[in-house]
Design a protein around this nucleic acid. Structure first.
Lengths: 346, 346
DNA sequence: ATGAAAGCGCTAACAA
DNA sequence: TTGTTAGCGCTTTCAT
């Protein structure tokens, strides 16, 4: 269909190497440059990235593996990352593994076959679904949001523990003692961190430390609703609840709605993630927010930097054991004040 | 790095063609089949899709261009489509163009350079950002959600007009006469259709037909909020409002919240798209829902069918002018009953 | 059924 | 600087 380098070589009377050189920013005599540009224009020539990829062994494609695409938190990150990567000429292949370890494994393998140059991932579980293979092949992997001990790669995290601790402290300072927590699944890194933060704050601030005040909500809407119900049944005297991700916040609000509990008079609530949802709630919810754009930028920039500097430092970057140095960036969370936390007079 | 066909040819003592034949489901003598399979196993051979793509001129990759990835409606469709396509061996390259025509154009061009085999798109505006080029190259394009007159391609739509008409009729039947509408931007197909549906219903049912009852909300949260405010200021006696997409529904609820309007006592509301949000609202919202999974499936299946049947029908499918027959599928919307519509006694 | 060889469009030595 | 040439890993005639 389209014209090839050969065509424009013929057209200009130049050699293939000259064309290639021009295309790759090499030095070409002014005269020839003009000739080449004219030919490209006339013949509507466009580099065939596939052929180039075959030769260079680089596809200029990044694989992204995420638990759920229809999860605003992830979607916001992906949007931003895709934008940055594309502006650098990298295409992204996104695979949604539906929080399923098996699907995740398939996705990683799929992307490996597709010869993507690097990976941005948010691991679903605690075991490596095949990331190491990329690392071994010298292909950069950046882990977002979640950490995994046994895969040596760069990470972009958020201070989950600190965020949870801070949220609970706010509740205690407002006079709450009996605070419930709707936690995530304990095979997920962020959920464990948020739990730790909650427990630390409870201990430090002398709030009620009762294991049954912590209920798992599985990071889903239904789970959040069920957890809320359970918590309320078991502790009707609980005055505040901390919900630790967006989906569960939605679920908890649904249930609070169903149970006819008045917020914040009867129950104070601090949610997570989605500012828009928080503002649209009645009353407006106070929530912990995550810097999605910064996360995406940190991950994309990191990947690009690794990719572009690779040829030069190919050896310099490795130490005696051939292990790469890895970097972990931890970003701060935010907090948006709403009207869902009651200040107790005591 | 990985083993190549050459390696396993050497290993088995067979010719390249035999290996290729085996890999592509051709006939190979039992004996050799086993030998090949063993060699593949031992050498961890995996087909290099890039090389294959160069040769076959097919990348087994589908491009997806959408207005916003962090929009649940789109995200749900994409997730499903990606899943189906991948299960057929197709990778997807997703480009989010942020509802910007310029970015959309760039995205389409980007995907064209990447030699994707086909496109799934939700056009941002009314003018072709380059889809025709794909059609001309014989590459299938499927348009989702929105239609575009001048690009001859398959479409998967939803009965937007019917959905809007139905929603308004429900309001009228519940006794409402003065009904406001928060509409989308009129350069978007779905927005125009929903508007038509609203107007038809108002005419048919003898509700108040006043142009100022229709306010544009730009399909955004902020727009929805602003429209709600404007509508309420201008028509404090309006008893119901129909909001025509998810983002605007969120925005409208935020504003209703701010204005202290009680739903449904003072104002009845029918929203759009997101069941979870509807259920988490106080009171639960009645909403129009769209069959995202079916939309995705229709689009993906259509694309795969076009792609896989192409070699055989290459000519049979075209008529004298070389024009392809195009298909438009229109799916039905749903309605989820909430508690946000008051039944008036009159 | 199998093998030999050409070539997809590009890059990268190596020469000139 | 520019031209020549040899592949990258695969598919695909065309013989055998």
């Amino acid at each position: 269909m389209g014209a090839t380098m050969k065509d424009i070589a013929k057209r200009t009377g130049l050699g293939l190497a000259t064309i290639s050189s021009y295309l790759n920013g090499g030095n070409v005599r002014e005269k020839n440059r003009i000739k080449i540009e004219e030919a490209i224009e006339e013949l509507h020539f466009e580099v065939n990235e596939v052929a180039r990829g075959l030769k260079t062994n680089r596809t200029k494609t990044i694989g992204i593996v995420i638990p759920e695409l229809n999860n605003i938190f992830f979607a916001e990150i992906i949007t931003e990352a895709e934008d940055i990567l594309r502006s650098h000429g990298y295409a992204t292949m996104i695979c949604d593994c539906r929080s399923d370890a098996e699907r995740e494994k398939e996705a990683v393998e799929f992307l490996y076959h597709r010869r993507v140059d690097g990976l941005i991932v948010m691991p679903t579980g605690r075991t490596d679904p095949g990331f190491k293979r990329f690392v071994r092949a010298g292909k950069p992997v950046v882990m977002i949001d979640r950490k995994m001990q046994d895969v040596p790669c760069d990470c972009v995290l958020v201070d989950n523990k600190g965020a949870a601790r801070d949220a609970v402290k706010r509740l205690v300072r407002a006079g709450h003692r009996k605070i419930g927590m709707i936690a995530g699944p304990d095979n997920v890194y962020t959920a464990r961190e948020r739990l730790k933060g909650f427990q630390e704050a409870v201990a430090e601030m002398d709030a009620v430390a009762d294991e049954t005040l912590i209920t798992g909500g599985n990071y889903t809407i239904a789970g959040g609703a069920a957890a809320m119900r359970k918590l309320y049944k078991m502790h009707p005297d609980m005055t505040a609840v901390f919900v630790t991700n967006y989906e569960m916040t939605v679920g908890a609000m649904m249930e609070i709605n169903d149970l006819g509990i008045r917020v914040p008079d009867e129950l104070s609530v601090i949610g997570f993630d989605n500012v828009d949802f928080a503002k649209a709630s009645v009353p407006k919810l106070s929530i912990v927010t995550q810097p999605t754009a910064s996360i995406a930028r940190a991950a994309a920039d990191n990947l690009i930097e690794r990719l572009e500097s690779r040829p030069v430092n190919e050896k310099a970057d490795e130490d005696a054991d051939g292990e790469r140095m890895t970097v972990t960036v931890t970003l701060k969370t935010g907090f948006v004040e709403g009207r869902s936390v009651k200040t107790m007079n005591n």
